[in-house]
């Protein structure tokens, strides 16, 4: 009885540690990616909106907030872990989660880039038509 109680306590402690390590890393990764992406996307936005700075920067800001929401939501959704009994399993669970999340972030980043390029192409097409 004594040993089972202490193992379940150890499991709880390890699960809490996993969450406390995983969440800040995921949030910081999201913030870094969003900062870089939306600092460099201003030039695309200016192209898309034909140099009208006010609307371009407003759109940029709105997209940035949507990006934060979606990615933090996804990070929270994959938070839950089961069955962590020792430090080896904790490290494995952590690397699985963080690796999966960073792959997800990379895919989303490239989708965003595709979106920007598509907008830019359409904008230049509409410029030629007129």
């Amino acid at each position: 009885m004594e040993t089972t109680l202490s193992t379940s306590e150890l499991t709880n402690k390890l699960i809490v540690q996993t969450y406390l390590i995983y969440l800040p890393i995921a949030v910081i990764m999201t913030i870094l990616v969003a900062r870089t992406l939306f600092k460099n996307s201003k030039i695309f936005m200016l192209d898309i909106f034909h140099g009208r700075a006010e609307i371009a920067f407003a759109t940029n800001r709105l997209f940035e907030i949507g990006f934060y929401l979606l990615n933090v939501g996804a990070a929270l959704l994959i938070l839950k872990t089961y069955h962590i009994h020792n430090y080896q399993e904790m490290i494995e669970a952590l690397s699985e989660k963080i690796g999966g999340f960073s792959i997800y972030l990379g895919v989303i980043l490239f989708l965003n880039l595709l979106l920007f390029f598509r907008g830019k192409r359409k904008a230049s097409q509409s410029l030629q038509r007129n």
Binding site: Y19, T59, L62, F63, I65, G66, F67, Y68, L69, L70, V72, G73, A74, A75, L76, L77, L79, K80
Partner: peptide
């Protein structure tokens, strides 16, 4: 904490999709 993470995760995804739709 797990329950909150699940709920708030879904809420963030829905709010984010609505936000992007608005844009």
């Amino acid at each position: 904490a797990e329950f909150l993470a699940e709920k708030i995760g879904v809420v963030y995804l829905v709010l984010g999709s609505m936000h992007l739709f608005n844009i």
